[in-house]
């Protein structure tokens, strides 16, 4: 009886988590006639028309490329900087450590709108509106708290004896970081990269402000601004949405454990 209750709830949760999105994926595989059919068609014909027209008429691949470039480079830069900062915070003698951690935590709470105007003006004066770096710089800033926090919490878990031994052998701090800490903390760095990548891939507000020309827009902006001539092109929107989401769903199913541990390290343990 108790078991039955538990499994019912589990099934309801899984059902509600997946069904709305599966419905949208299904829509992307329908034909024009099936999308507007009443009663709705449950099993789509499996047509790829909407993907074809998404690519041909709505520049779907273009948005995808921009998203990959911006999110990929942002993730690389954020992680590179986070490793240095995380090591300093987790392991080194440092004044104002509390202040620095507090400042980072504060940044993670900033509402985007509170920095939007000045960031936009700054990028405008640099001539960086509608450029990859114009979006990458804000993304690096906004994901640094997450990156540093997770990387530092993984560094802290490594045994200190390793470093002491290396110091006795005459290694410099940089060598310790590079040769000993980095390889051991690789799983933590990987976890942080997944979360940073997902953040950058999904970000919409700054992408909307900064990328006003279609040539530089990322997938979320493209998907939000899809316009048909008379009605909304739902099939193409669903196709683009599926393209934007499938990589993330794969990440979630492959790296569920890492994501769960990373998010709780980033939020609770700190």
């Amino acid at each position: 009886m108790k078991r039955l209750f538990f499994y019912t709830i589990t099934i309801i949760i899984v059902f509600f988590s997946l069904l709305p999105f599966l419905w949208f994926v299904g829509t992307s595989l329908k034909t024009e006639v099936e999308v507007t059919a009443i009663p709705p068609v449950v099993i789509p014909a499996g047509s790829l028309d909407f993907y074809r027209s998404g690519i041909e008429k709505y520049n779907l691949l273009h948005f995808l490329t921009n998203s990959l470039i911006v999110s990929g480079i942002s993730t690389l830069i954020t992680l590179f900087i986070s490793v240095f900062a995380g090591y300093a915070i987790a392991r080194l003698r440092l004044r104002f450590k509390g202040v620095i951690m507090g400042a980072l935590l504060t940044v993670s709470m900033f509402p985007q709108i509170s920095i939007a105007g000045p960031v936009w003006r700054l990028l405008q004066s640099l001539g960086w509106l509608n450029s990859y770096q114009g979006l990458i710089f804000p993304y690096v800033t906004l994901t640094l708290p997450l990156g540093v926090w997770i990387v530092a919490s993984f560094f802290r878990e490594l045994p200190e004896e390793l470093e002491d031994a290396a110091k006795v052998d005459g290694c410099t701090h940089f060598q310790i970081l590079y040769k000993i800490i980095l390889p051991l903390a690789a799983p933590g760095i990987f976890t942080a990269s997944i979360l940073v990548f997902i953040y950058a891939w999904n970000e919409f507000f700054f992408a909307l402000l900064i990328m006003t020309r279609q040539a530089y827009q990322t997938l979320p902006v493209g998907i939000a601004l899809f316009q048909g001539q008379y009605t909304l092109p739902w099939g193409e929107i669903a196709a683009a949405s599926t393209v934007a989401t499938v990589p993330l769903v794969l990440l979630v199913f492959f790296f569920q454990k890492r994501i769960v541990s990373g998010l709780s390290a980033g939020a609770v343990k700190g």
């Binding site: 949760i13 899984v14 999105f21 999904n202 902006v221 939000a224 989401t245 769903v249």
Partner: peptide
């Protein structure tokens, strides 16, 4: 993993 799917989906999507 199934529960995480809504979290991972871009908000725009």
């Amino acid at each position: 993993a199934a529960v995480l799917v809504p979290w991972a989906i871009p908000t725009v999507v």
